[in-house]
Amino acid sequence: MKRIFVLLTLTALLATGCVPSGEVPTTPPPLLDTGIDPNAWAEVPAGEFLMGLHDRETLVDYDYEMMVTSVTNAQYAEYLNQAVAAGTVKIMDDQVVGYYPGDEFHGYEHEKKIEAGDWLHVPLDDPGLRLDFDSTTFAPKPGYENHPMVMVTWFGAKAYCEFYGWRLPTEVEWEKAARGTDGRPFPWGDEIERNNANFYSSFDLFEKIVGKQGDTTPVGFYNGKVYDGYQTLDSPSPYGLYDMAGNVWQWTSNVYEGVHYRYMRGGSKADYAYNLRAWTRNNAGPDYFSPNVGFRCARDK
């Protein structure tokens, strides 16, 4: 019987030794220029599209625009510097917080009150944050400038978009922008390959650094370019948006009756490929933050 224990322990140790430790990296990742402009916007024309797992015909009767990529650390750092100066957000107890007027409460089972007041936008003391703050100025951590902003709550995402006069996309807007009108499950088509997107165990460059759950990849990374010998597939959505599947979940704007949760789309670096299908939903409270959650903005045309 002792042999079994020894065998099991050895196997476990050997197998564990095959994967990186997964701790937060101490050395910065290489800064990779993807050539995709995070300030660019893509137009999504009005019209019907097939929505959800069961392809329900859904009409969006207006044109709109969405950011081509997720908001980056550099963009969010710049925003925080401006927003603190403008007084729309403030720093309190290692947190960036800002005012939210609250949700209408309906008293449904499991519904939580979201009251008017200051709510968390970004925690400053979590190792998952890719921003530095020297008590006066925010800056992206070296190497993470063009990676998507993470560790941002729904409040923080909404505040960013509204600061510039934009908004978070609704779920309908998000899904249409991701899959176009032909009912495809992924932004680029019907099937997913490892070098289409950043997902769990997709073996991208950054998984070598931090393990299978990986790190974020720079926005627009999967555009057909070769990075340090790693060939990506060009994977935009039909309207030219990048990273609409994988890398980070993206907050959407809807506030539904009876639930306090906010919904996220797209799947992330920590999810299996099936979570990257365009209709897959995730949700959490609006004050939730994670190294796997970011956002992008939308605006009317």
Binding site: L8, S21, G22
Partner: peptide, 23 residues
Amino acid sequence: VSESAQQPLVNWTMVLTDVGLAS
């Protein structure tokens, strides 16, 4: 464990699960 620091725990539990089920 927090989400930012979960990778070692994920690695260990995955390995033990795989070893257990495979056996």
